[in-house]
Design a binder for these strands. Structure first.
Lengths: 110, 110
DNA sequence: GGCGTAATGTTAGTGATACTAACTATATAT
DNA sequence: ATATATAGTTAGTATCACTAACATTACGCC
C-alpha cells in the first residue's frame, strides 16, 4: 500500500478534528474564524460538549462539508471543494451565475 | 395551471410544518413518533424554539429529508445549471479548478 | 345560537448544556 | 532548562429546548 487509509471518523468531534487538520488549522485559528473560544473547539473535538446549531453551520461552511456528514458521518453527494463551489454558485446573482458557467465552459474546453 | 406552486419554506419551522403536512400528520401524531410533547412541535413550527440535535435527526428521518434542508433549506440534489456546472468543474484540470473556485469566490462576494 | 371536539397557539417554569475563563499538560526547539 | 506553541481539563454560568397547563381557533351538528 502506498497511501495510508484514513480511518473514518466515528464521532462528531473526530470528524471536526480530521477536517480541521486537513485544512491545516490550529484550534486557535479555527476558533477565531468561528468566533468562539479555543477551549470550545477542544471540547468539541474530544466530544465533551456539543455545538449549538449556529456554530454547526459555521463549521460546515468553513470546513467545506455538510451538516449530515458532521452530525452522522453520512457522506452525501458533494463534499469539499465541490460543495464549496456549489454554495458559492448558489450565493451568486443570476447574472454572476451565467458568468461562472461561461468561465467553466471555457476552462473545461481547454 | 393544474398544480399550485409550493412556496419554498423560509424558516426551519416552516419547513418542518410543510413536510409534516405533506406527510398528512397532525402535530399530535408527529409528537408521538418523536417522543416529544405536542407543544414542542407547535413551538418548532412557529420558530419559538429550536431543536436539540437528537430531535433534528429524528425529524429528518421521519420526514424523509436531510439536516441540510431542515436547517438551511439546502437541497442536496443538483439539477439543471447546478449539475452542468458540476460536470464542467469535474472536467477541469486541478489548476483550472482552482481558477474556477477563485472566480466563484470573487463573484459571490460582491 | 350554543355545544363539542379536533387541531393548534401561548406561557411559565425548569433541567440540561454549550459556552467562557483560567489553569494544566505535552511536545518541540534553542 | 526555558520558552513557545498547541491542546486538554475544570468550574461556573447564561442560555434555551423542553414539559405541563391553559388559551384559541375552526368546524360540524343539533
Amino acid at each position: 500500500m502506498a497511501s495510508k487509509k484514513q480511518s473514518p471518523s466515528e464521532t462528531v468531534g473526530a470528524r471536526i478534528r480530521a477536517l480541521r487538520l486537513a485544512a491545516n488549522m490550529t484550534q486557535d485559528e479555527f476558533a477565531e474564524k468561528l468566533n468562539v473560544s479555543r477551549s470550545a473547539i477542544a471540547q468539541w473535538e474530544t466530544d465533551r460538549a456539543g455545538q449549538i446549531r449556529e456554530n454547526m453551520e459555521k463549521i460546515a461552511k468553513i470546513l467545506n462539508t455538510s451538516l449530515g456528514y458532521l452530525v452522522s458521518g453520512e457522506t452525501g453527494s458533494l463534499q469539499g471543494d465541490e460543495l464549496a463551489l456549489m454554495r458559492l454558485y448558489r450565493a451568486c446573482s443570476a447574472e454572476d451565475r451565467k458568468m461562472l458557467l461561461l468561465t467553466a465552459r471555457r476552462l473545461a474546453r481547454s
